[in-house]
Design a protein around this nucleic acid. Structure first.
Length: 577
DNA sequence: GCCGTTTTCGGCCCGACTGTTTTCAGTCG
């Protein structure tokens, strides 16, 4: 059993313990354990073999024993017993806003409700109002919650949420009462998928600011409102939380509401050890006096003896320790990107010709572009036969003569066939400046076979990089089952690049794995997988993910200047007969 | 269930908001 699965089970145990009314600290121990395993850098099987799990902070005797059982046998009796006691429908009920473990437990104990359907029926029958801690309002909210769940899965891709949030922020910034404003939360941390939009405002009159906000045309409905906080639904269904603080509180609140929760928790623990209390209003000594003054987040961190931690990496994965030691990475920036690979054209399923893609790339300030249409097996996408490959190469040669400050590299996105081989004979593959090897078929292979398939493709001398390594489509499709640890190892051994597919529906490799690749010495190419000129801009979503994965300029393949890239692609890497 | 330069027992991050209550529990972030 792998790391991800172990992490999922520990988390589920935490939830079940809450549902059973166990000590909240006990379930928290499982949540912490789950998170720790999820972010584990080392191979969990090896840790178990060497009996080194117990050295990890947060893994004690009980968790050590349980994780060991899971990893070695694939089962955990404790987990299965718990599962036997709790109807699966209770987990779904937890997704309803306003229902937590305690209330779900009451519904189960008193009304015997075990599914969303039964719950909806009980609401309609007006049975919830008689329960302790419930009333008419709660019953109505539960009913609405069920309907909302049915209508919407409630998770959104980053670009959609960003667009909506930016509109709200721009509109609010025009009001004189709004002194400062920013998005916060997962959106500011640039997560690939977000649940809601958090907006923080500094101002002295919260009531007026909340009135202004509630009156914005995008706001469909205000669902909660207090003295400092307003929750609303947008017409698109996205939940927005607005929080108003005073200008003095703003930097602290911005840090607090940016999170992540895990980062904040660790920051507060660290503060507490130094006799400081950290909350959204400030940093305070034990005598409740303000500790240091700050106008910006930079000062918030420096007052606490830390380097400035960029929002993207506030995930409590070592950033606080690094900030303490002055060893935070210098994260890659959009301006570091020098060129763009993985570009489709009219030759296969793109919507523009090579010249149009080149012009757009040049406008973006790029110094090179790597054209890579689909290979012949990708019938559905108009994959290129050998004749088309040669024709395209001639066109690229012709276009290249037009520029002395820009380079078009000849490439292909070659399907990785089921047996791990590439889609053309080596004589053809050897003609390309670069080859992206990607899986587009036989997604259902078992983990071992799929891993072997990718490892074999990476070992091919003509392969330059591995495209969209897991094949996932966010909110739509799980990736294929593959052992990324092995894939990264193979990339390192063969000196190959791994793509970070920057299409916002993919963002594949995920940020945790970017970091793992970096540590293994594997460089990442941030590729938009563009099918239109506009699509080239997706590369910047990939930069977000790369930053979350602690990548620096040196870790990013397409941050290489043109001259260095020419050396990379025109020297020994290619297959020669 | 985890943890310990005061501790192997007694803590465990913190606060706002809602709806139910009449002083607070539960939920959420």
């Amino acid at each position: 059993m792998d790391r991800k699965e172990v992490s999922r089970i520990l988390n589920e145990i935490g939830v079940m313990l809450e549902l059973m009314g166990e000590s909240p600290f006990k379930s928290r121990a499982y949540y912490n354990g789950s998170r720790t395993i999820e972010l584990l850098q080392e191979d969990i099987k090896k840790l178990v073999e060497k009996d080194r799990l117990k050295e990890i902070k947060g893994i004690g005797k009980a968790l050590n024993q349980k994780i060991t059982e899971l990893v070695t046998t694939g089962h955990l009796k404790y987990y299965e017993d718990l599962k036997g006691e709790i109807p699966p429908g209770l987990f779904e009920m937890l997704r309803i806003p306003g229902l937590g473990p305690k209330k779900v437990r009451v519904l189960y104990d008193r009304l015997g409700i075990t599914t969303l359907g039964e719950l909806e029926y009980s609401c309609i029958e007006n049975r919830l109002t008689a329960l302790p801690g419930f009333g008419a309002r709660t019953q109505q909210k539960v009913l609405e919650g069920i309907q909302y769940l049915n209508k919407n899965r409630g998770r959104y891709l980053y670009p959609e949420a960003l667009e909506k949030a930016s509109k709200l922020v721009e509109a609010m910034a025009l009001y004189p009462e709004v002194k400062r404003i920013s998005t916060a939360g997962s959106l500011r941390r640039k997560m690939a998928v977000v649940k809601d939009i958090d907006i923080l405002v500094a101002g002295d009159n919260a009531e007026i600011i909340m009135d202004r906000f509630a009156a914005l045309p995008e706001i469909e409905r205000v669902v909660e409102r207090g003295g400092a906080k307003l929750g609303a639904l947008l017409d698109s269904g996205i939940k927005v939380d607005l929080r108003v603080v005073t200008p003095e509180q703003y930097p602290y609140a911005l840090h607090h509401f940016t999170g992540s929760k895990e980062h904040n928790t660790a920051m507060r623990h660290r503060g507490k050890k130094r006799g400081l209390k950290i909350n959204e209003y400030g940093v305070f000594t034990e005598a409740e006096e303000s500790f240091g003054k700050c106008r910006h987040e930079e000062e918030f961190f420096s007052n606490l003896g830390l380097q400035y931690i960029p929002p993207e990496i506030r995930e409590n994965t070592g950033e606080i320790e690094a900030a303490e030691n002055n060893s935070l990475p210098r994260l890659v920036e959009p301006g570091d990107i020098q060129g763009i690979f993985h570009v489709h054209t009219l030759y296969s399923d793109g919507s523009a010709d090579i010249a149009e893609m080149v012009e757009k790339a040049r406008k973006m300030g790029m110094k090179y572009i790597g054209i890579s249409d689909h290979s012949r097996s990708a019938y559905y996408a108009g994959g290129l036969d050998q004749e088309a490959v040669l024709r395209q190469m001639e066109e690229i040669d012709r276009l290249n003569r037009l520029y002395d400050d820009f380079m078009i590299f000849k490439g292909i996105e070659s399907d990785i066939l089921a047996d791990g081989s590439l889609d053309y004979p080596d004589e053809i593959l050897g003609l390309f400046d670069f080859v992206i090897a990607s899986v587009h078929s036989n997604f259902g292979m078992d983990r071992g076979s799929m891993t072997g398939r990718l490892v074999k493709a990476l070992a091919h001398p003509c392969t330059t990089m591995l495209g969209h390594p897991t094949g996932r489509l966010l909110l739509a499709r799980e990736g294929y089952s593959v052992d990324l640890e092995e894939v990264i190892k193979a990339a390192a051994q063969n000196n190959k690049i791994i793509e970070l597919n920057a299409n916002p529906h993919r963002l594949d490799l995920d940020w945790q794995w970017c970091r793992r690749a970096k540590e293994s010495g594997v460089r990442i190419s941030i590729n938009p997988d563009a099918h239109s000129p506009r699509g080239l801009e997706d590369v910047f979503y990939g930069v977000n993910t790369a930053r979350k994965g602690w990548l620096e300029k040196e870790d990013v393949f397409n941050a290489l200047p043109l001259a260095d890239m020419e050396k990379e692609l025109f020297s020994g890497r290619r297959y020669t007969q």
